[in-house]
């Protein structure tokens, strides 16, 4: 920039010019900080709402698990009652789906640690190694909306490799 006045600016003028620049910089940073903070607060609120809903729903999952177990263990002598329990279970599954956490069907899929938690291995010559052969506790939701991963039993080829600790 061309300067009309040839003389050097006085020292304190340089000083105050620096000061002004510094203050302006800080001011802009403060505004930017505030703006960023606002954006993050909005994001955080969204995230927390989701997290809280997921937490609450997850607390109920053991009840659904136990309904499943009741159905599994039900004998022929209580078929009518069992039918009712099954209806209740289906109602619960439908509700979970509506809330955004559909039940995952994982048997036959390759093991994937983002969706599955391995609880045991079994030798199984029928399917490729690393296939989910049994779901001991189903997973709900997927991706970012995963409520909990499925607990699964995984095939381990034909050799009998016992589960580690």
């Amino acid at each position: 920039m061309s300067d009309m006045r040839p003389e050097e600016p006085k020292e304190d003028e340089t000083g105050s010019a620096t000061k002004i620049a510094e203050l302006e910089d800080r001011w802009k940073r403060a505004l930017a900080d505030l703006d960023n903070h606002r954006k993050r607060a909005a994001r955080d609120a969204e995230r927390q709402r989701f997290a809280e809903r997921a937490r609450t729903v997850a607390e109920w999952l053991p009840v659904v698990d136990n309904l499943e177990r009741a159905i599994e263990h039900g004998g022929a002598d209580c078929a009518v009652l069992l039918e009712g329990v099954r209806a209740v279970r289906d109602q619960a599954l439908e509700l979970l789906t509506r809330l955004g956490f559909p039940r995952q069907d994982d048997v036959g899929r390759p093991f994937d640690p983002t969706r599955h938690e391995a609880v045991a291995t079994v030798p199984d010559a029928e399917v490729p190694e690393g296939t989910v052969v049994q779901v001991t506790r189903p997973g709900y939701g997927s991706g970012d909306g995963q409520l909990r991963p499925a607990q699964v039993v995984v095939s381990k080829g034909t050799q009998t490799d016992g589960p580690g600790s």
Binding site: P113, A118, K156, S165
Partner: peptide, 25 residues
Amino acid sequence: AFTEQGERLVGQLARRQAILNPKGT
């Protein structure tokens, strides 16, 4: 975890597959 497929997993994901991969976790 270092999986057989050559993947590296860290944290919760590594823990979930520990039982399948006792030597690589």
